[in-house]
Measured scan of single mutants.
Amino acid sequence: MDETGKELVLALYDYQEKSPREVTMKKGDILTLLNSTNKDWWKVEVNDRQGFVPAAYVKKL
C-alpha cells in the first residue's frame, strides 16, 4: 500500500495497450490497483492514466 492506503501492484512484464481501455506498463513499474474483481483484467492507474492490464502480468505488493 502507498501512503494513501491504496493497494499497489508490480508490473512483472512489459505490456503495450491494445485498446483505449488499457494502459501501457513496463516491467518494474509500480501501479495503483483500482479494481481486481475480474480474474483476468485488473484496473490500475499509472502515470495519471486509468485502464486495464492483464492480471497475470502484475503482482500485488
Rank of each mutant, 00 (worst) to 15 (best):
Arg21Asp: 12
Thr37Asn: 13
Tyr15Asp: 01
Asp48Ser: 11
Ala56Pro: 08
Lys26Ala: 08
Arg21Thr: 13
Asn47Pro: 08
Val44Gly: 00
Asp14Leu: 02
Glu45Arg: 10
Asp29Ile: 04
Asp2Arg: 04
Asp14Tyr: 04
Leu61Thr: 07
Met25Val: 09
Ala56His: 12
Asp48Thr: 10
Lys26Val: 10
Tyr13Phe: 14
Leu33Asp: 02
Leu61Ala: 05
Leu61Phe: 10
Asp2Met: 13
Tyr15Pro: 01
Lys18His: 08
Glu22Lys: 04
Pro54Tyr: 02
Val58Leu: 15
Tyr15Met: 01
Lys26Cys: 10
Lys6Met: 10
Gly51Phe: 08
Ile30Arg: 05
Arg21Met: 12
Thr37Pro: 04
Pro20Met: 10
Val9Cys: 13
Lys43Glu: 14
Asp2Ala: 15
Glu3Gly: 14
Lys43Cys: 12
Tyr15Ser: 01
Asp14Cys: 05
Val53Pro: 01
Gly51Tyr: 04
Thr4Arg: 06
Lys43Asp: 03
Lys39Met: 10
Val53Arg: 00
Ser19Tyr: 07
Val46Asn: 15
Asn38Ser: 10
Phe52Val: 07
Ala11Pro: 00
Leu12Phe: 03
Tyr13Glu: 11
Ala55Pro: 03
Lys26Thr: 07
Ser36Val: 07
Asp40His: 14
Val46His: 15
Ala11Tyr: 01
Leu33Ala: 02
Lys27Met: 08
Ala55Tyr: 02
Gln16Arg: 11
Glu45Thr: 07
Thr4His: 12
Ser19Ile: 04
Asp48Cys: 11
Leu61Asn: 03
Lys59Ile: 15
Thr4Asn: 14
Leu31Arg: 00
Asp29Met: 13
Ser19Lys: 07
Ile30Glu: 03
Glu3Asn: 14
Leu33His: 01
Gly51Ile: 05
Leu12Glu: 04
Ala11Glu: 01
Thr24Val: 03
Thr4Tyr: 13
Tyr15Gly: 00
Gln50Tyr: 06
Glu3Trp: 08
Ile30Cys: 06
Trp41Glu: 04
Arg49Ile: 07
Leu12Ser: 02
Glu17Phe: 05
Leu31Gly: 11
Asp2Trp: 15
Lys6Val: 14
Asp14Asn: 08
Leu31Thr: 01
Lys59His: 10
Asn38Met: 09
Asn47Lys: 11
Leu61Lys: 04
Val53Phe: 00
Lys43Ile: 14
Val58Thr: 04
Arg21Val: 12
